[in-house]
Design a protein around this nucleic acid. Structure first.
Length: 491
RNA sequence: CGGGGUAUAGCGCAGUCCGGUUAGCGCACCUGCUUUGGGAGCAGGGGGUCGUAAGUUCGAAUCUUACUACCCCGACCA
């Protein structure tokens, strides 16, 4: 079955590419590095958006929208920030086209050169802080807790659908606070919110921690992240939350008068998750039959496929199927009845497996006769026949089970692929042959981190935030270390 | 940005070395009939400026040159 998909074990990268395209999530566009997100893929993204949006609102955030274009001069204000993004910025230099004098098409009108070039946002800190400056005078104006859903552009050399594209969709939160403590608290609140979302909705276990100096966001004091392990043993950064200190407030001169009448710089955070999460969803749960979607995010949770000969049989099956559909929908479930006569049941079975629909119901003449229905679950690829009257009750429980099972399966995979390593030989052997997360001691220096990266392509994914300390020696340099950090090869 | 590869129907490919009928195959698509409990069968049909431009030639998918796009491997990155 599904022999048109490359097998995961044969070529994981190819499996991923095949799956994203065959499952109708996205495709490459005519524009280099940019993808077209197709309706089915976008429907999943819309679920991600709406669930995250609820969580943001529930924690006091509001949405707003800032411009796509950023004046070049804004970028230069924060030194680390420019340096981090300079190499991947798309720049608008002109604002008009004209017909070519030889009549062969159009060209950029050289007379329409912009006084100041505009950068297409790779992220919005600068334009936002330039704006916040006008909004903030007093501690009474704080905090500002704003999120925006937007597209951003980072001119990547090598792109892959969802995982790394030149343009991508994301949300970026930008908050302003009166105190350092409050900003730090916000950073952690969001990190927890992301972890909650990815685990409970996407069904993917994550590690939470802070980033090393070299992996930090350009312009941040601290970057916190959640990391998830994909089925090829590589780690994927699924979300980041940055404590920006007063860096952007100073760069954009955003000061406020505190309760004691003293002028202070504002403290800030920024945080985001992107369409990259779609890639995580594919790689964390997919198998050789296609996608496996967690019920909490599946655009279609249950598909009903009729099996029939002739129109009269279809009519009686349809009336039963539509009754079940409406009963299920009354319980808030997302159901599709696929009565297309242009495809055979076997084709539909394979198609919905490819698309990861969590549950498939099949009703045929035998079922009508016996008062039964066939229930097939995507995560385990198992089937059972139940009494048709019990469908609604059975299914709401089943979807919960599937959601849990998907998470537990991923958690088990991660546990099996997490290794404590204490010697350099073991480290190299483990990263090369097994992949996964490696918990090892590190001396805390950028030099060691760099050398490990050069020799093994493994990077520090996170430095755990919990207080657990364990004296040991750096796996590379042998110098003393107080805690283990998490290494992996990463996307 | 460095190294390698590819470009022929919507998709995947053959043909290119060694120029010569009307450019072919599989899938997909359209029509009809038979089918429908795991990707149906048969019959018929439609679809191509052979990536772009120039050159060599009586004649170019095929040879030459330039350009462009895409893919893979590195560096960079969410």
């Amino acid at each position: 079955m599904a022999d048109f998909l490359t097998k995961m074990e044969d070529n994981y990268a190819q499996w991923y590419n095949d799956l994203v395209i065959k499952a109708d999530l996205a495709e490459n566009s005519a524009v280099r590095g940019c993808m077209v997100i197709k309706p089915y893929g976008y429907a999943i993204w819309e679920k991600v958006q709406s669930e995250l949006d609820k969580l943001f609102k529930a924690t006091g955030h509001v949405n707003a929208y800032f411009p796509l274009f950023i004046p070049k001069s804004f970028f230069a204000r924060e030194a680390d920030h420019v340096e981090g993004f300079a190499k991947e910025c798309a720049v608008v230099t002109h604002y008009r086209l004209r017909n070519r004098s030889d009549g062969k098409g159009i060209e950029v009108d050289p007379d329409a050169k912009l006084e100041e070039e505009l950068i297409i946002r790779p992220t919005s800190e600068t334009i936002i802080w330039n704006t916040y400056k006008n909004w903030i005078q007093s501690y009474r104006d704080l905090p500002i807790l704003i999120n925006q859903w937007a597209n951003v552009v980072r001119w990547e050399m090598r792109t892959r659908l969802f995982l790394r594209t030149a343009e991508f969709l994301w949300q970026e939160g930008h908050t302003a606070h009166a105190t350092r403590e409050e900003a730090v608290e916000e950073t952690k609140t969001i990190l927890d919110l992301y972890a909650h979302f990815v685990q409970e909705y996407m069904g993917i276990p994550v590690l939470k921690g802070s980033k090393s100096e070299s992996e930090k966001f350009a312009g941040a004091i601290d970057t916190f992240a959640i990391e998830a392990l994909m089925q090829d043993g590589k780690s994927l950064q699924a979300g980041t939350s940055h404590f920006l200190g007063q860096n952007f407030a100073k760069a954009f001169d955003v000061q406020f008068t505190d309760k004691s009448g003293k002028l202070e710089y504002v403290w800030s955070t920024s945080w985001g998750v992107s369409t990259r999460l779609m890639g995580a969803l594919v790689m964390a749960h997919g198998d050789n039959n296609g996608l496996v979607l967690p019920p909490n995010l599946a655009p279609i949770q249950i598909v009903i496929v009729p099996i029939y000969k002739g129109n009269s049989q279809l009519d009686s099956i349809s009336s039963t199927a539509l009754k079940i559909k409406s009963d299920l929908e009354k319980h808030g479930l997302r159901v599709k009845y696929d009565d297309r006569d242009t495809h055979k049941p076997g084709f539909k079975f394979a198609e919905y497996e490819l698309k990861g629909v969590p549950v498939r119901l099949a009703i045929g003449p035998r079922d009508i006769e016996n008062g039964t229905i066939e229930v097939a679950r995507r995560d385990t690829m198992t089937k059972e026949v139940i009494n048709i009257d019990k469908t609604v009750k059975h299914l709401s429980g089943l979807l919960t089970d599937i959601q849990k099972n998907i998470f537990n399966k991923s958690l088990k995979y991660r546990d099996l692929n997490t290794y404590k390593v204490d010697t350099w030989d073991d480290f190299r052997e483990s990263i090369e042959n097994k992949g996964g997360f490696i918990l090892a001691h590190w001396d805390g220096t950028a030099e060691t981190e760099e050398k490990i990266k050069n020799e093994t392509r493994a990077t520090i994914r996170i430095i755990p935030i919990d207080n657990s300390s364990e004296a040991g020696k750096c796996v590379y340099s042998g110098k003393p270390s107080q805690k283990r950090v998490v290494f992996a090869r990463a996307y």
